[in-house]
Each structure stands twice: as structure tokens, then as C-alpha cells.
């Protein structure tokens, strides 16, 4: 430490341990931080600023009109903006069904079943298909008289009694939600299987010996040990539902009352070029997402004290290791 205070030539400083550490830190951090700034924080700042202006992308900087809070008021006043938020409720319901389904299947697959890996693969694969391909697959799937209708006819339904899955406003949002569930439930399931597998296998054996059936095992062993990841996913699914975008964007393009908040925002930004209003919409949604995230933190802090304290001991251990390391370094410095 004392050596640092003495005046050294830059070359000497660069050769010292401390100097090397600083140089390599700067070299390693500079580019990622620059990218982070240019593609996340600069746009974020611009977004907040633009939300107070009436402007297009092509409007030169001096022609933009400052409109104060008008854009924000419009977000809540315009039916197409605020009404679209209500559509998220469909997606919230879908997301919860999806989690229940994923948990159910994950439980089945965690015990020994024949062909378990095969089924797991089948159900997971949709997650790897691109959104646009899914769009085509399901446009085809839901078209009148096509795949879905044919299957229902096999099951004894009459074609005349079936609705138009993508046009009928009573049902079309559910059709899109089902697509979203189809795409993501396998991913959720794999996640839950991972969590269930990390439970000590002895617990199941002991439970088996005690004569507990699978349902009891689920309630008393599996559920308590994965409640953290389940809750995390419930909260994530709420923020995910608010930002539902891909399915309506590629399948219906927001037609017939299926335009979710982001579909409308995308249209306002890139088609009507009302950049100010779109920015205000984005900021409003970000605020809601932050609120959810804070709630999540509080929830984990006060409801899941146990899980948290584990984390704390882990953090404490890390801090101790770090302190030891620092001490060693200091000793080396003295020597």
C-alpha cells in the first residue's frame, strides 16, 4: 500500500500488481459497458425524454414540440392503449394454467416413467421454434376447416357449431393465449424438473417406506422444496403477460381486438410514427414492471425468510472468503 503513494513512473505503475489489475479491469469492462450504455441506458434516457414530446423519428431535434404530460394522459385516455392492458388478464390466466400444467407434468416426469425423456423432449421442443414459424403454424392450425376443426370433428363436434378461432372476438384471445401456453409450458416444466431433481432422493425413499403415496409426497416433499422457484415464476409470468407480444403480433397482427399493449405500441411507434406517445406507453409499462419486481423482492423478504436466510449465510461466506483474500493480499503487499 505504501508503494502506491510513492511517485512512480507510469511504466513502473503499469507493471505493479495493482496497476495491472486496474489496466485489465478497464480493458475488459470498457466495451461491454459501452454497449450497455449505447443500447440500454441511452435509449432508456431518450425514451423518458421523448415521452414529453410530440415527434416522429424523422423530426429534426429543433422541431420537436414539448407537450408536457399530455402523452401520459393519452395513454390512459385512449381506448386502444389502456384497453389493451386489460387483455393482459387473458395472458395472466393462461400463464397460471401453464404453470399448473408444467408443475403437474414435471411431477409425473420426475418419478420413473417409461419414455419419460421422449415425452419431455416432445413437450419442450416448441420452445425452440421461432416466433414467426409458430405464427404460421398456428394460423394454419386455427384456419376454418383446417387442423383444429378437423380434430374436433373427429371428436364428434359439428363444424357449424365451431367458432372462427381467430376472428370471433369471444374466443380469439383465448386461442392466442393457448398458443403462448403451447410454446412455453415445456420450458417451465424442464425448469421445475430441475428443481425437483435437486431434492434429496433419500426423502422420497423414506416417504415410500413410510407408505406415503405420490400425492402426499408431492404436497409434503416436492412443493415445499420448490416453492421459491414456483413463486418466482408466478411473478415473472405476470410481468411476462403484461408484455405479451409475439403471438398476437405474428398470428393476427392485432386484428379483431387481439392487440395487446405492445402490439399497439409497436404500431404507434413504427407505423403511425407517434414516437412520443409510444415512449410514454413504454415508460408506463416499465413502471408497472418495476412495481411488480419490487413487490417480488418484498414478498421474498417477508414470506420466504427461510430461503432468504440461506442466501444470507451464503453471502456471508462469500464476504468472509473475500476478506481472507484481501488479508492475504495485504500481507503480500507488506512482505
Amino acid at each position: 500500500m505504501e508503494t502506491g503513494k510513492k511517485k512512480k513512473s507510469p511504466m513502473q505503475w503499469a507493471r505493479s500488481r495493482k496497476g495491472q489489475q486496474i489496466l485489465i479491469s478497464i480493458a475488459f469492462i470498457a466495451i461491454p459497458l459501452l454497449l450497455l450504455f449505447v443500447f440500454t441506458y441511452l435509449p432508456f434516457g431518450q425514451m423518458v425524454k421523448f415521452s414529453f414530446y410530440k415527434m416522429k423519428y424523422t423530426t429534426p431535434a429543433d422541431k420537436r414540440v414539448f407537450v408536457g404530460w399530455k402523452n401520459y394522459l393519452d395513454v390512459f385516455r385512449r381506448d386502444d392503449c389502456f384497453g389493451a392492458l386489460k387483455l393482459s388478464l387473458f395472458y395472466v390466466v393462461g400463464a397460471i394454467l401453464q404453470l399448473v400444467l408444467a408443475l403437474y407434468l414435471a411431477t409425473i416426469l420426475s418419478f420413473k416413467v417409461k419414455g419419460g425423456n421422449f415425452f419431455k423432449g416432445l413437450m419442450f421442443f416448441p420452445y425452440l421454434i421461432s416466433g414467426i414459424a409458430i405464427g404460421f403454424i398456428f394460423k394454419f392450425f386455427y384456419t376454418r376447416g383446417f387442423v383444429f376443426d378437423t380434430i374436433l370433428q373427429w371428436c364428434g363436434f359439428q363444424l357449424d357449431n365451431l367458432p372462427y378461432w381467430l376472428k370471433d372476438q369471444k374466443i380469439n384471445n383465448w386461442s392466442l393465449v393457448a398458443t403462448s401456453v403451447w410454446r412455453y409450458f415445456g420450458q417451465n416444466m424442464v425448469l421445475f424438473i430441475g428443481a425437483i431433481m435437486s431434492v434429496d432422493a433419500d426423502l422420497y425413499e423414506a416417504a415410500d417406506l413410510d407408505g406415503a403415496n405420490k400425492f402426499q409426497q408431492f404436497i409434503h416433499i416436492i412443493l415445499p422444496s420448490i416453492k421459491t422457484i414456483v413463486t418466482l415464476n408466478v411473478i415473472l409470468s405476470i410481468t411476462g403477460s403484461l408484455s405479451a407480444f409475439e403471438q398476437p403480433y405474428v398470428i393476427t397482427d392485432g386484428a379483431n381486438g387481439t392487440g395487446t399493449y405492445f402490439v399497439i405500441m409497436n404500431e404507434i411507434a413504427h407505423t403511425s410514427q407517434k414516437v412520443g406517445l409510444a415512449s410514454a406507453m413504454a415508460v408506463v409499462l416499465l413502471l408497472i414492471i418495476f412495481a411488480c419486481t419490487i413487490l417480488q423482492k418484498l414478498f421474498f423478504k417477508y414470506i420466504f425468510r427461510d430461503a432468504e436466510s440461506e442466501d444470507e449465510s451464503y453471502a456471508a461466506k462469500k464476504a468472509r472468503l473475500k476478506a481472507e483474500k484481501a488479508q492475504k493480499k495485504a500481507q503480500k503487499g507488506v512482505a
Binding site: P43, Q46, S243, A269, L285
Partner: peptide
């Protein structure tokens, strides 16, 4: 924390102004 915060921002929303940049 900057990265943690960045992970909360939905990509589609950010494109409104990333497009400008």
C-alpha cells in the same frame, strides 16, 4: 446492478428508441 436493471427492460419496448439510435 446496472445489468440487473437492464434485464428488466422488455426488448420490444426498448426498440422504440433503440431504432432512433
Amino acid at each position: 446492478n446496472l445489468y440487473l436493471f437492464a434485464s428488466l427492460l422488455p426488448a420490444v419496448a426498448m426498440q422504440v428508441t433503440v431504432f432512433n439510435i
